[in-house]
Design a protein around this nucleic acid. Structure first.
Length: 274
DNA sequence: ATTCTACCCTGCAAGC
DNA sequence: TGCTTGCAGGGTAGAA
């Protein structure tokens, strides 16, 4: 669920309800996420006002005057705002954290696989080890062909692994890596260091196009965000290769190839992608 | 320095 | 029906 567009959709969905609101109560039912939730989270966060909800890559940042709550949704995490109180909305099995605000809104963190994390950081956020080495945002101007081409020189890793490396660029997950490479006509196994700058220009546009289209579509769920079940559905129909291994290519009708590349399912068209 | 592998955890679908 | 196996949108640590 949480690729960059989903995280951005989550940010847009929760911020109207929790920005400028004060945290009055927290319930932590499961502290063992990707990393344990630190013991000082409650004492640090309760009583603080959320000044801003922002995003860096796939990390959500809830900024207060004294520290920042860093949230990552991992592979199965989600955040929902409930208008009911904790008492009237009984937690499910994987509802690990509740944050209650003084406007009576409840932010609930759910994560069946517990690959997500929730970290309390009082030092400047740019110094956090998880954030300090991140590459540029894919939708910002610093992410361009010159940059990608420069970073890729001398690298023999497959271009798909290269663009999924968060130190190179953030937010490109498995689905969008597959889709962007298809759109750009680049074979996922091609060595990153052996791709010309003109092809990187195409790839940059394709990554941006795929991500912004998905954000735009994700935005339609915002209307019912508080009631949302988190069903994806909408951009599923616009996927051209992901989940379509063995099916015909939408461009040339040849059968799409499915392989494992770096432990992740990779689908591509061997005729359209070189 | 870069690249590859194993692993964190649970749920689900497919195959036997 | 029930069990086993493999796979899932994330990322890190440590080995090669």
């Amino acid at each position: 669920m949480p690729e960059l567009p989903e995280v951005e959709t989550t940010r847009l969905g929760i911020s109207p309800y929790i920005e400028h609101q004060r945290v009055v109560q927290m319930v932590l039912r499961q502290r063992n996420l990707r990393w344990p939730i630190s013991a000082n989270l409650e004492s640090g966060l309760i009583g603080q006002i959320i000044r801003k909800v922002s995003r860096r890559g796939k990390y959500l940042l809830l900024t207060t005057d004294v520290g920042t709550l860093i949230i990552h949704l991992g592979m199965s995490g989600s955040l929902r705002v409930l208008s009911d109180s904790i008492a009237t909305t009984p937690p499910g099995k994987h509802d690990h954290v509740d944050i209650l605000f003084d406007n009576a809104q409840l932010l609930r963190f759910t994560d069946p696989r517990r690959f997500g994390c929730m970290l309390w950081q009082t030092d400047p956020i740019t110094e956090h080890p998880l954030l300090c080495d991140l590459g540029p945002e894919p939708l910002e101007l610093s992410f361009d062909a010159e940059y990608l081409h420069g970073r890729s020189r001398g690298r023999s890793a497959p271009v798909k692994a290269f663009i999924m490396d968060s130190q190179v660029v953030v937010g490109v997950g498995n689905i969008y890596a597959n889709e962007a490479l298809f759109k750009a006509g680049i074979a996922p196994r091609r060595a990153a260091g052996r791709i010309a700058i003109s092809r990187y220009a195409t790839l940059v546009s394709c990554i941006q196009e795929v991500l912004s289209n998905a954000i735009a579509v994700g935005g339609t769920t915002l209307r019912d965000f508080t009631n949302s079940n988190g069903e994806p559905g909408y951009f599923k129909q616009s996927l051209q290769v992901y989940g379509r291994g063995g099916m015909p290519c939408v461009q040339c009708q040849h059968m799409l190839t499915e392989v494992r590349l770096g432990q992740r399912t990779t689908v591509y068209c061997s005729y359209c992608q070189k």
